[in-house]
Design a protein around this nucleic acid. Structure first.
Lengths: 109, 109
DNA sequence: TTGACATGCAACCATTTGGTTGCATATAAT
DNA sequence: ATTATATGCAACCAAATGGTTGCATGTCAA
């Protein structure tokens, strides 16, 4: 079964796709051609990446004349953070807390 | 180039690996056999997943007798959050802020 | 010491992934 | 009307991924 979360994680697993998201974060509403500039691969390859990002709901598109505009949707990223990553962060905070306690206790020697 | 972040993202991209991390989060120091229980795949397949998690520094291992113990390291997860995901979260907060402003302005009609 | 258990290692396999090229179509500009 | 630009679609391909099986090795227990 491919869950929604799984699509997001898999979409984020590729450096080229993360770079595309990064560029949309800096400047939203870029066209396909604009997104292709500076990416060392064919337009069709970029399109494939964008389709995956769309399927993960990380990017929304709107056609304007002959151009296709791309918009970042950061919501799914936030979702996997709150629903998954956050649990591990809290674990780390707790681990640091435990370490701090251990260090303080070792000072009692 | 395969960066450190890239290894972490790719390690998290597989549901089975996320499940393994989840189990270590709930109970740290599990052996390989214990981690295999409840996973519908061969021991060797689980080993491969654990190797990837180790290479991403998400799991640390220690051999004790004939058993191999596995420990969760949540630090890399926190790193990709602060260095990458957080930027998108702030974006979302800002978007919500903008939406709120827009709604309030529309109330002036 | 013999057998059972826990793990390691390697070969192999099907599917997915990430890319390519070629061609078609729709829109804008001259 | 013609040409250039922006995008869509499909076939193809190599490499990576996620799994398998078979066998070897190290360690604990009877």
């Amino acid at each position: 079964m491919v869950t929604h979360d799984d699509k997001v994680f898999k979409a984020l697993a590729d450096a080229s796709r993360r770079q595309l998201l990064d560029r949309l974060r800096k400047k939203n509403g870029l066209t396909l051609s604009e997104l292709c500039d500076g990416h060392d691969m064919s337009r069709q390859a970029v399109t494939k990446h964008l389709v995956l990002l769309e399927e993960a709901n990380l990017v929304t598109t709107a056609k304007q004349g002959r151009e296709k505009l791309h918009y970042l949707n950061p919501v799914p990223i936030n979702e996997i953070y709150t629903r998954w990553i956050g649990k591990f962060e809290r674990k780390q905070v707790q681990a640091l807390h435990n370490l701090k306690q251990a260090l303080e206790e070792s000072n009692d020697d």
